[in-house]
């Protein structure tokens, strides 16, 4: 006994503590009233909802503290629905808590494991029945079944093939070609170099061949941001510098990280920021990535002016725009 460690004993379920309503009929009556009031409030909520639906015009507004000027129909419908549901719930729970039996009950658990004899019988039955089907012996059937089951999943996959066309050259091309005019987005008018002062920006899209409707797919590839800097602010290699025109530089607006529109231009620091994942590009150094997850600079569009003085592209983008993809050949940037 002296070496035996004595543990604390489970004292068992504590004795039931009676509620007021269990012994005091007045308290029980009070609880009943509380529950009834809660259910009545729910009914009132439903009436409010219906009244708001029928009688309150949808262009009425009411000033409420914290919320400001708020649509009256919306708030009344909402509060009516809130009351009609919430109070049913509160009433039912209050009923259960105060008036329904609150004596805890004990139920026994049973082990999930089947009896040994049942398990043995199952294994035996499985072996016997499987054996009678020749599962162990007929290896030709087993293997061919394995093959067919392995392949059967392919047909739905193949059938999904026509969910879309093949990308072909889509990811590597845009609508910019030599001589494409830059049109202001959304006005659609061409733009001259003199239209931009130092520190000015413009969102542009390519002029499409006559009769072509601009789609969102076009915009998703073609969107370009024009920025005018002082020419001496650039720190570019001669080729990239020759792609600018009088301090105007053009970049694809589609982020090389995940394709969001990059257009937060800070004209003092010359930083371009993408609001999605905060990749930051330095415009003076050819949109080189200086912060954030993007791995490549924004592609630069070579621009000049045409005979009428309007800004045009010199050539298509020399690298694919937008996020990376497997087939992207990044050897030239």
């Amino acid at each position: 006994m002296s070496n035996q460690i004595e543990r604390f004993e489970d004292p068992g379920l504590p004795a039931h503590v009676h509620r007021n309503a269990d012994s005091d009929p007045l308290a029980a009556k009070r609880a009943e009233r509380q529950v009834a009031i809660l259910f009545m409030l729910s009914a009132l909520g439903t009436v409010l909802t219906i009244a708001a639906y029928i009688y309150v015009k949808s262009d009425k507004y009411v000033y409420l503290p914290i919320m400001g000027s708020t649509n009256l129909q919306q708030i009344l419908l909402g509060l009516g629905l809130t009351a009609s549901t919430l109070f049913i719930g509160l009433g039912a729970i209050q009923w259960a808590k105060k008036l329904m039996p609150d004596q805890e009950e004990i139920a026994e658990r049973h082990e999930f494991r089947s009896k040994e004899v049942d398990r043995d019988e199952l294994v035996a039955a499985f072996k016997e029945r499987g054996g009678s089907a020749g599962l162990g012996r007929r290896s030709l059937i087993k293997r061919s079944l394995g093959l067919s089951l392995g392949l059967v999943g392919l047909s739905p996959l193949v059938l999904l093939r026509d969910t879309g066309p093949l990308p072909k050259k889509f990811f590597t091309t845009t609508d910019w070609t030599a001589g494409t005019r830059l049109l202001l987005d959304p006005a659609g008018t061409p733009i001259k170099a003199s239209d931009l002062e130092v520190g000015a920006v413009a969102q542009v899209l390519p002029e499409l061949p006559a009769g072509t409707e601009r789609t969102l797919e076009n915009t998703g590839k073609d969107a370009v941001l024009l920025i005018r800097l002082r020419p001496e602010d650039f720190n570019l290699d001669p080729q990239k510098l020759s792609w600018t025109y009088q301090g105007i530089i053009a970049f694809s607006k589609i982020c090389t990280h995940m394709g969001c529109a990059v257009a937060l231009y800070e004209q003092q620091t010359h930083h371009l920021l993408c609001p999605c994942h905060q990749s930051t590009f330095d415009v003076t150094r050819g949109a080189k990535v200086i912060f954030g997850p993007a791995a490549r600079p924004l592609p630069q569009l070579a621009i000049t002016v045409d005979a009428d003085g309007y800004l045009v592209a010199v050539q298509p983008f020399t690298v694919p725009i937008g996020p990376s993809f497997w087939e992207r050949n990044s050897s030239n940037g």
Partner: peptide, 18 residues
């Protein structure tokens, strides 16, 4: 005027009416 970080939006790129 394009104050501080904000770029300028000239009357040619966004017209006065716009």
């Amino acid at each position: 005027t394009g104050p501080q970080s904000m770029p300028k939006f000239t009357d040619a790129t966004i017209t006065p009416q716009q």
